[in-house]
């Protein structure tokens, strides 16, 4: 003890960034800024994934979430960001209800987090010495998870992973269906009723 560890510093950095930007998403009323804060929050989350030794998931988060989903989202924001919609005001009552729900959730979740995440007791340490040693290994990033995850997805059960071939196939089909569906929904259509609203001509 007494020694400051780098892991904790990095965790604090990314963790605080994540929390701050998540809150910024909530309290910002400009939808474009919200999107920007969301990007930063999710990028910081991928940093947390790297710190937890989940390098493949972290990279995946960057590729798919930040690089794919959020670009799509920002694209949508820009398509619909006509002046009146950039900042829609929230009614006061909504804030009260939301704050109550959020507060209650926090009050439930945070104690649970402290309860579940308690450091191992003496008794449990006997059963889990290997894990204790794993904690002290200092280089989370170099542990290869990608190969084991890949094998897991192909249905080869590994050390600490079970086979996931069926969910993998289901999710593939699901993605295909979604792709077709989204393309069908968003395809160019003539607007049925033409309304004369200024500022929509070049959309």
């Amino acid at each position: 003890m007494g020694e400051i560890n780098g892991h904790a510093i990095l965790f604090l950095f990314f963790g605080i960034l994540t929390c701050l930007f998540s809150l910024a998403v909530v309290f910002s009323s400009n939808v474009v800024r919200m999107a920007f804060y969301l990007i930063l929050a999710l990028a910081a989350t991928s940093g947390l994934h790297f710190l937890a030794g989940a390098d493949f998931v972290g990279a995946m988060q960057l590729v798919l979430y930040v690089g794919g989903t959020l670009v799509l989202l920002v694209f949508g924001v820009m398509l619909t960001a006509q002046n009146p919609f950039i900042s829609l005001r929230t009614a006061g009552g909504d804030w009260v209800v939301a704050a109550m729900v959020g507060g209650i959730l926090l009050v439930i979740l945070i104690p649970v987090a402290f309860q579940v995440g308690l450091p191992p007791t003496e008794a449990s340490q006997l059963g889990g010495r290997a894990d204790r040693e794993a904690v002290t290994s200092t280089d989370p990033v170099s542990v290869p998870t990608a190969t084991r995850i890949g094998l897991g997805l192909l249905g080869v059960p590994g050390d600490d992973v079970s086979g996931y071939l069926l969910p993998f196939e289901i999710i593939s089909i699901h993605l295909l269906v979604v792709l077709v569906g989204a393309a069908y929904l968003a395809r160019a259509k003539r607007r049925v009723t033409v309304r004369d609203t200024p500022g929509t001509a070049d959309v």
């Binding site: 007494g2 400051i4 604090l12 963790g15 926090l106 979740l109 945070i110 579940v116 995440g117």
Partner: peptide, 17 residues
Amino acid sequence: LTSPVGLTHYLVVGAVM
């Protein structure tokens, strides 16, 4: 800063998100 990062740390960040 001195204690090792634990499950709790992550769960708290997750809860805030």
